[in-house]
Amino acid sequence: MTEYKLVVVGAGGVGKSALTIQLIQNHFVDEYDPTIEDSYRKQVVIDGETCLLDILDTAGQEEYSAMRDQYMRTGEGFLCVFAINNTKSFEDIHHYREQIKRVKDSEDVPMVLVGNKCDLPSRTVDTKQAQDLARSYGIPFIETSAKTRQGVDDAFYTLVREIRKHKEKMSKDGKKKKKKSKTKCVIM
Rank of each mutant, 00 (worst) to 15 (best):
G15Y: 01
G138H: 02
A155D: 03
T35Y: 00
I84L: 13
Y96R: 07
H166A: 09
V45L: 10
L120C: 12
K180G: 12
I24E: 02
Y137Q: 03
L120R: 14
T148P: 06
Y157E: 08
T74E: 15
S65P: 10
K165S: 06
K5I: 00
A83S: 15
V45P: 09
A11R: 10
M67H: 06
K16C: 03
S106L: 10
K104H: 10
D33H: 01
T158M: 15
I84N: 14
F141S: 04
L133M: 07
V8G: 03
I36M: 03
Y71S: 14
K178Y: 10
R41H: 02
Q43L: 05
T158S: 11
Q22E: 09
L19H: 11
D30G: 08
R41S: 03
K175S: 04
D153R: 06
E31T: 06
F141R: 03
I93M: 15
R161E: 07
V81R: 00
G60F: 01
T158L: 10
A134P: 09
I93N: 04
V44R: 12
G15N: 01
E107Y: 11
L159Y: 01
Y32R: 00
M72F: 07
S145A: 15
I187H: 11
Y137T: 08
V112N: 00
G48W: 04
T35V: 00
Q129H: 05
D30R: 09
D154S: 06
Y137D: 09
C185E: 15
P110H: 02
K175M: 12
I36G: 00
V114I: 09
E31N: 03
I187R: 10
Y32G: 00
E162L: 08
D69V: 01
K165R: 07
V7G: 03
V186I: 15
A59D: 02
Y64K: 12
I46W: 10
D132R: 04
T2W: 07
L113P: 01
H95V: 03
V7F: 04
P140R: 02
E98M: 07
T127P: 05
V114T: 02
H166L: 08
E37M: 01
K169A: 09
I46K: 08
G174D: 08
E162S: 12
L6D: 04
K165A: 12
K5S: 07
G12V: 04
F28H: 02
N86L: 02
G75R: 03
N116F: 00
G10S: 14
I21M: 05
I187E: 12
G75F: 04
P121H: 10
F90N: 13
M72I: 08
M67Q: 13
P34I: 02
K176A: 14
D69L: 03
Y40P: 00
M111H: 02
Y96T: 07
I55D: 00
S89V: 10
D33S: 02
G48Y: 06
Y157P: 09
M170Q: 09
S106D: 13
V125C: 08
S145V: 05
K5L: 01
K104A: 15
Y71A: 11
G115P: 05
E3V: 04
A130W: 14
T158E: 05
A83F: 02
L19V: 11
E98P: 01
E3P: 05
E162T: 11
D154P: 05
E91D: 08
F141Y: 15
V81S: 09
T124L: 07
G10A: 14
L23Y: 08
F78S: 01
G151P: 15
I46L: 08
E162Y: 07
P121V: 08
K5R: 11
V152C: 07
R135I: 14
R73K: 09
Q61I: 06
P34C: 02
D153E: 08
V109L: 06
K178I: 08
C80P: 01
Q61D: 13
L52V: 15
T158R: 05
D108P: 08
M67Y: 12
R41I: 04
H95Y: 07
R123D: 12
K184G: 07
K5H: 09
L19Y: 03
V81L: 11
E62H: 07
R97G: 12
L53N: 14
V29C: 10
A83D: 15
G151D: 05
P140H: 03
K180R: 07
A83H: 14
N86G: 10
R164P: 02
A130Y: 14
V9K: 01
V8I: 13
V125N: 07
T87R: 09
E37A: 01
M111A: 03
T35N: 00
R68H: 13
K42A: 06
D33W: 02
Q22W: 07
T144V: 12
K16S: 05
V103S: 08
I187D: 15
E62S: 07
Y4E: 09
V44Y: 14
L52I: 14
R123Q: 13
Y4K: 15
F28Q: 01
E98V: 01
C118V: 08
Q129A: 10
V7N: 14
G13Q: 09
K101C: 14
C185L: 02
Q131I: 06
V125I: 07
E3H: 03
R68S: 15
Q61H: 12
T158Q: 10
Y40K: 00
V103K: 03
H27A: 14
D126K: 07
G151H: 15
D54N: 04
K175V: 05
P121Y: 09
D173W: 14
P110M: 02
I84Y: 13
V8H: 03
E31S: 03
K128H: 05
Q22Y: 03
K42G: 03
R97T: 13
L79F: 03
P110V: 03
S39I: 10
V114H: 00
R161V: 02
K5V: 02
Y32T: 01
G151A: 07
D57R: 00
V29N: 04
P110I: 02
G115H: 11
L23S: 13
C185Y: 03
D126I: 05
F82H: 07
G60Y: 01
V29L: 08
C51F: 08
T127E: 06
E63Q: 08
G10E: 13
M72W: 12
K172Q: 07
V125L: 06
G138W: 03
D38E: 00
D30V: 08
D105L: 13
T50Q: 15
L113Q: 06
L79S: 00
R73E: 13
Q99W: 11
H166W: 08
V7L: 11
V160P: 01
M67C: 12
M72N: 10
L6P: 02
S122V: 05
N116A: 14
I24N: 15
Q150E: 07
F82T: 07
K180F: 15
E31G: 03
C51A: 11
F141A: 03
D105I: 09
K165V: 09
Q99I: 15
D105M: 15
K101S: 13
E76W: 11
I55P: 00
N86C: 07
D69Q: 09
E3Y: 04
D33Y: 02
D153T: 07
D126A: 05
D119A: 15
I36F: 11
G75Y: 09
M170T: 04
K169H: 10
Q131V: 10
E91W: 02
G10K: 01
T20M: 02
T144G: 03
M188N: 13
K104D: 14
F78T: 02
Y4A: 07
K175D: 10
T158Y: 06
S122A: 08
G10Q: 02
A66D: 14
V45A: 11
K180A: 09
V125H: 10
E62F: 08
G138D: 04
I84M: 14
Q43M: 13
Y157T: 07
